[in-house]
Design a binder for these strands. Structure first.
Lengths: 247, 247
DNA sequence: CGGACCGTTGAAGAACTTCAACTCGGGTGG
DNA sequence: CCACCCGAGTTGAAGTTCTTCAACGGTCCG
């Protein structure tokens, strides 16, 4: 494993860029840091580690050393049950943190796989933890980020437990749209980085159901689908769908 | 709200008992604390606040001030969607922490309702946060507890996304059994604190399906059901169920 | 003792899955 | 450069699982 990392480390250093200059700073780090604090954080964080499409950033069972922030690209995280069923637990885009599940058991419990060529920043957890004792805003930030993950998971539980296929897909598309918008990309038209099967796994549906539902939405004029390119045509219609049918 | 709390506060103080004497200490707090650290924690934590069956400890939207540890009793937490659908996000027994969802948005996002007469300990979050900067073990403990909640949620997502009704119910019963065992209660026979509907909400099933499945398990000799009293008769059989059917 | 709530069970219906056939597009090797 | 092939996606038809609707029994509590 160590040897495999060496060629990467070269690129790693070439791409090095301080958090203080990073446009994603508001997403990853608390915004109340002063220059001195920022510098301390900068010194800990390893930046721009590239992960090729299809590669795993980490896998379930590997020892925990760091959290990872997506710098560019797109990831899925998934858990696998004892009998081999995969459940996608999340899709992660720039500025989002991965690996928080690993703190409790000291090893990762998910696989994190890049769905396109990506780069991540490495946050060595022990060091961050100890730095967060000196910088209250940083400590609070980590509590908040973990809390946000819990809230997000509850939202997925609501979706999986109560919603019908059409509502799930509509909610999924709206969620992606919103997250692209926050990052300055178009919220009305975007490229899906994942397969129908991965969407299905995340939403508790089979890939055929995902495909059928997207086709149905297109027939209804809600969206336009061209392979993985999605264009939202009637956002209000989609929103109504999410809050309409009784589950 | 303040007035309603006053009669409680009397009992609150009557029941006061230090964490250092509490048998649940290993569940709530890190076990590496020395006497001095323990004392500091003790001084912050409000103990033995009683919540009657059916009452809410907190509700979604209320401002966040404290985490709560179940001392005695049993709680459910649930989120409600915009159109009024309830999703039970968890059942919580003694030693377990509730309210971590509230850190990110500074208000609770769930309702927490007692399913039997209960008592909770109050952990004022801001004070705990600042104390945790002085006690590394305490800080690490909170990170771990939140991480554990994330892992648990991923497990529920796997259950809701991939499992059939029988597998969900079997997994649910085995999970309860294990948690009772940890607390020194019988793992083979226990009382369900929640209705069939609440089980169904948690597992993404209708109450009739829950009822039918329990009856079926009884017919198969896996369990014995008497209202809310459950007796496990074939734990291995249940375990096989969880890891058998392909979802 | 009456009523509300909880739970059980049957039968019919809806929603999703499964199985299967086919299309499309991109990459590879002849 | 083109043929081929593979993975991804679409669509139809049949099948399964769960839900819905409805009726009824039990139990707890005022």
């Amino acid at each position: 494993m160590q040897t495999a990392l060496q060629p990467r480390d070269i690129t790693f250093k070439q791409l090095r860029q301080a958090c203080s200059n990073c446009s994603l700073r508001e997403l990853c780090l608390p915004n109340e840091l002063n220059a001195e604090e920022m510098k301390q954080v900068d010194e800990l964080i390893g930046q721009g580690k590239p992960i090729k499409r299809g590669e795993a950033l980490y896998r379930a069972g590997e020892p925990f050393r760091a959290l990872y922030a997506v710098r560019v690209g797109f990831f899925k995280t998934s858990v696998v049950s004892e009998d081999g069923r995969e459940q996608v637990t999340g899709f992660h885009m720039s500025g989002e943190l991965m690996g928080m599940d690993a703190i409790s058991a000291d090893h990762y419990t998910c696989d994190a796989v890049a769905l396109e060529d990506s780069e991540v920043c490495e946050l060595p957890f022990e060091e961050m933890e100890s730095l967060s004792r000196k910088i209250p805003a940083l400590q609070h930030h980590f509590y908040r980020v973990m809390s946000r993950e819990i809230v997000r998971d509850h939202g997925v539980m609501l979706l999986l437990g109560n919603m019908k296929a059409e509502e799930r897909i509509a909610a999924f598309l709206l969620n992606l749209s919103q997250r692209f918008q926050i990052r300055g990309y178009s919220s009305m038209s975007f490229h899906l980085r994942m397969t129908r099967e991965e969407i299905g796994s995340y939403l508790g549906l089979k890939l055929e159901t995902v495909s059928r539902t997207l086709s149905k939405f297109q027939d209804q004029g809600l969206i336009k689908v061209q392979n993985r390119l999605i264009e939202l045509r009637d956002v209000d219609g989609l929103k109504q769908l999410v809050n309409s049918c009784q589950g």
